[in-house]
Write a protein that binds this DNA or RNA. Structure first.
Lengths: 255, 255
DNA sequence: TAGTGGTCTAGACCACATC
DNA sequence: ATGTGGTCTAGACCACTAA
């Protein structure tokens, strides 16, 4: 017994666009995302049970269930039978960072050692500003770091963040935090990454990069440009990684 | 009213492995996949309606629905409201090949011109045999081709196939077929690709490759090694692509 | 034992495509 | 008008977890 019938559209007269029918469970999804975004339920915490949410929204359990199913598929929520439904988090990653697809040719997928090179506040270059939706010249943070495995540097990352969202971020802060960087972003800055697009190319190592990754200049490297988004598809991080793929590969699944 | 209750396990005594509870809709999924695999419903065709399948399997529509939902998520089936549920196919791809993630830096995603270099039957090298699950030395087909956009070669593919599954495949046959190669595999050889894994690296162009792709020797190229599987997760194609990423990039989505 | 998510049913009604 | 998939409900029971 919903409060209102599925409400094919709002009370306002039909806009020229068309019918725009939205099923109940989609509306529930929006309400759930709003609660996630507002911080009512924090990463790692349990959300209310399906029955409780059904009561709150005055819909059946099945409708809430379908909404949660969708959000679980989108990796916003995690279901655990017998325990509850939890807000997904980057802070509890087991083996490796969730967004890092780099696998070693042999051996297990162990963690990688991090080494922060610098963390500077500067005006966002035009290209960065455009990607992050900043006005050109707005302040941004630029972090550079390397990732190591077996005593060899494998990844060089250059990370751009809108300064206004990450006030107080320093290289020390990054170095002393134990878990993945996206975990720190969640707990310290309330910014949760939920989706990303990557553009991958092969490039030649320039002088500076070659030295940092300990390869000959001109060596082929994998360039991975990642734009990460938070709730509402708002872009909040631009990251360019250069991967030495002589003993690692980028793994992808197609279906 | 199912024929049997969900049958926590088969009639046989419990194997040491454990309970192995399998819900009804999972069992329905297996039956549907079996029908797909046997060719009862061919790529592009409609499968029976949910109600009809529910009758056939003696379960409720909801249970069939959940099974089909799963298979649609796995891209084995495609739902079309008001029309029916159809067997997915590579033969009706609109813009581009479904498994090709290469995007132009600018301009629309147009089709690419194909040029077949050769198609030879030979013994599978050890590495290929291992990937395809062949005995070493078993016959295999090796196809090489290039893909062009705007009069420039962009992709060089080397494709390995088990010879026994693709009897009669020739370069002429490939050249005269209009649609994507996986479409030809479906219609002419009854082999449908449903899933693939890719290993991506940056490599330097060797002499022969450099000439075919019209780049200087040593240029960085994207190496994309793809292992494609058909029903039952059986590997049936090993493909190594070399992409010139100066005006294209490999696009990936993370979530 | 109680509470959670997971499965399954039966039936009603809606949106979409086709005739 | 008919048939398809899509949504929603109400209720029963099962599997898993934790106290």
């Amino acid at each position: 017994m919903p409060a209102d019938p599925p409400s094919t559209e709002s009370a306002s007269p039909a806009p020229a666009a068309g019918p725009a029918f939205s099923p109940l469970y989609q509306q529930i999804k929006l309400l759930l995302v709003k609660s996630l975004q507002s911080g009512e339920w924090k990463p790692g915490e349990a959300i209310p049970s399906e029955l409780e949410l059904a009561g709150r929204f005055r819909v059946s359990q099945g409708t809430v269930r379908k909404a949660i199913d969708d959000l679980a598929t989108e990796n916003l929520l995690v279901r655990r039978q017998g325990k509850g439904t939890f807000v997904a988090t980057h802070a509890e990653e087991q083996i490796q960072y969730r967004f890092l697809r780099l696998m070693p040719d042999d051996g297990p997928v162990t963690g990688m050692a991090r080494h922060f090179l610098d963390c500077r506040r500067m005006r966002a270059p035009a290209e960065v500003a455009r990607a992050l939706g900043l006005k050109s010249g707005e302040p941004a943070l630029m972090v550079r770091r390397t990732l190591w495995r077996n005593g060899q540097p494998v990844v060089l990352d250059e990370i751009w963040l809108p300064a206004h969202l990450f006030k107080g971020l320093t290289a020390e802060r990054l170095a002393q935090y134990a878990g993945p960087m996206y975990g720190l972003f969640e707990t310290e800055f309330g910014v949760r990454m939920i989706r990303a697009e990557e553009k991958i190319r092969a490039v030649a190592a320039d002088e500076a990069t070659a030295e940092l990754l300990q390869v000959p200049p001109g060596s082929p490297l994998l360039s991975v440009e990642r734009l990460s988004h938070t709730y509402g598809d708002k872009p909040v991080e631009l990251r360019r990684g250069l991967y030495n793929t002589t003993s690692h590969y980028y793994r992808n699944e197609l279906s």
